[in-house]
Design a protein around this nucleic acid. Structure first.
Lengths: 152, 152
DNA sequence: CTTGAGCTTAAACTATGGTTTAAGTCAATA
DNA sequence: TATTGACTTAAACCATAGTTTAAGCTCAAG
């Protein structure tokens, strides 16, 4: 017999509160979850794998509503393969876009780190703020231009 | 005289709704914003630059409450340089962590894309699902192991 | 057969980041 | 001078993603 888990055990296993698992269940995010005769949720390894799957989709930025859509398609069987394929491919593009945006944000933060490193050393923000463009490290000058930073 | 903007013009310039600029102002996120004699907000280029600054911090994942903290420190002057420096360095680490997490999520999605590409070609999810580990592309096998994917 | 930990539910509550609404003000134009 | 469009406010509303609460149920151990 495959090992099964109560909601508390599953929560410990997954590192989330049991209330979250109940919330997901209420939203229909566990396609195969069953109950004991007295109504207690019984989590199998397969259910835990669905939970990890949901975690990955959430990490990728997918809202619960779209996860629900995906799961409904999964329940409908092989006839929905194309639609699910479109969803995961769209998600891949969304993740790539998010990573590109984060890289820009990181550059901006890199500039601010440089700015405060210089300010801390000299005791005043005037030093980095009024520095001539030619005196900036080339990468910093590039970021300033790209992020439209003119004053600070 | 420097060009100034009404809230509607500033909103167009920044590509956000005017209601968002009012909301930010109410939260104290415009340290230098002034009003006309009749109470109308007057946005200068410097205020627009603060707005773009806020946008970058938001893109980096900083909550508005922490942006507010940062702005209060900015208003307090050079005595708070060290504290602001700590904030931007911490934000840099947070962005790096977020990028690393997104890379893992992208790998997971890459696996799902492969899965549905194979399923679509054969007409059934059984094909990718039951494929022997030795028949998987090496990168796909690696992701499956790392993401603890056993069934799907 | 009682006790206690852990399970059940619905509903209220929280936090974040806004958006919308209602009622009113201001300033340039017909 | 009346209209029109853009501005003002406070307060209500919204969506997302849960968390907490209150009241009650289940089940293994003593």
């Amino acid at each position: 017999m495959e090992k099964v888990y109560t909601i508390g055990e599953a929560a410990r296993e997954l590192g989330v509160p049991a209330s979250t698992l109940r919330f997901y269940d209420k939203r229909g995010l566990f396609p195969d979850l069953t109950r004991s005769r007295s109504g207690i949720r019984v989590y199998t390894e397969g259910d835990l794998e669905w939970a990890r799957f949901i975690e990955w989709l959430k990490t990728s930025g997918m809202p619960l509503s779209e996860i629900k859509t995906y799961i409904d398609l999964y329940r409908a069987g092989d006839a929905t393969i194309e639609e699910r394929r479109r969803i995961v491919h769209a998600r891949r593009e969304a993740v790539k876009a998010q990573m590109a945006e984060l890289e820009l944000a990181r550059d901006f933060i890199d500039y601010k780190c440089w700015y405060y490193d210089v300010a801390a050393e000299s005791g005043t923000c005037d030093t980095p703020r009024t520095m001539a463009e030619g005196d900036l490290p080339p990468e910093i000058a590039r970021i300033k231009r790209r992020c439209r930073i003119n004053r600070y």
